[in-house]
Design a protein around this nucleic acid. Structure first.
Lengths: 148, 148
DNA sequence: ATACAACAATTGTATATACAAATGTAATAC
DNA sequence: GTATTACATTTGTATATACAATTGTTGTAT
């Protein structure tokens, strides 16, 4: 991925700006590939995320706060994400009996089955995105990203 | 930035997934900081981008295609971005006389003046975001991001 | 000259995101 | 017990993004 080429600019960009632009460009690519991989299942990356978190609960119900805390993008409106998953029959939502302010969200059998397929899809997408990276590269990348 | 801590998860994530999640988390942070820096000027990062591209034209007018090609996020609806800048008096838009399908967009004096202020703001934001990076780190980061 | 394809920008629409306000429930103070 | 505050979620609304359809203009073939 060549930054100057993508931006069709000939003049060099300062290292600092270039790094951040680079990051945004890479993010856009990553996001597009995830989205297009999930598209045929009519599910967004955030919805997939919710399902994966729910599976991680091992049957234990999660409330909205828990989901929100574990989401990659915290500012997603989790209520509406759950709404959509509910319509598709991928999750259950019930009022928590011991505290009626809370809700208990669990993944359904259908949700789990779909996840198995999506896992495969997402795995391929990630392999694809990271095709040019060695293990060492990835460790290195993680270390650098930690500096943010 | 610690990925596991942000996602409130105790179990380790596979290196590949972790790298991509890490990237998304960093992007979110970068984006939020840009947005909040520009907020008091009621301008979005994409709008700022358009202004900066126009200044780079050195007086020469740009049409929509040119802008679009040079945008960091190509999928922005440039027509509407320009609409908004127009309302604010930061750009001019005229039909191209030699080819009435095209439009000619230029930055106004007000636009240039605002940009000078924004440059300072953005510069500070970028310094802030990259505070923990050495030059070497940045070069390294750019090299790794190139692998995408 | 007319028809047709290609081009450049705009518009429409569905979905997503950001953020504030509102709703309903529970806990606490008095 | 009533008022007040805090809590958990939902709703409202403005803005942004994704993508397809439409409009108006130009170029080309016949």
């Amino acid at each position: 991925m060549n930054v100057e080429q993508i931006l069709k600019t000939e003049k060099p960009i300062a290292l600092e700006s270039r790094s951040l632009i680079h990051l945004i460009l890479v993010y856009n690519k990553v996001n597009e590939q995830y989205a297009s991989a999930l598209k045929e299942y009519e599910i967004s990356l955030q919805q997939f995320n919710v399902l994966r978190i729910l599976r991680g609960q091992k049957g234990k119900a999660a409330n909205l706060q828990t989901l929100n805390e574990r989401m990659v993008s915290k500012q997603s409106n989790t209520t509406r994400l759950v709404d959509k998953l509910l319509v598709k029959g991928l999750v259950n939502r019930e009022v928590c009996p011991s505290n009626r302010r809370k809700i208990e969200i669990t993944i359904t059998k259908e949700g789990k089955e779909l996840l198995l397929e999506l896992d495969r899809i997402i795995n391929n997408t990630e392999k694809d995105l990271l095709a040019d990276f060695s293990k060492d590269d990835l460790v290195h990348l993680n270390n650098l990203l930690d500096k943010f």
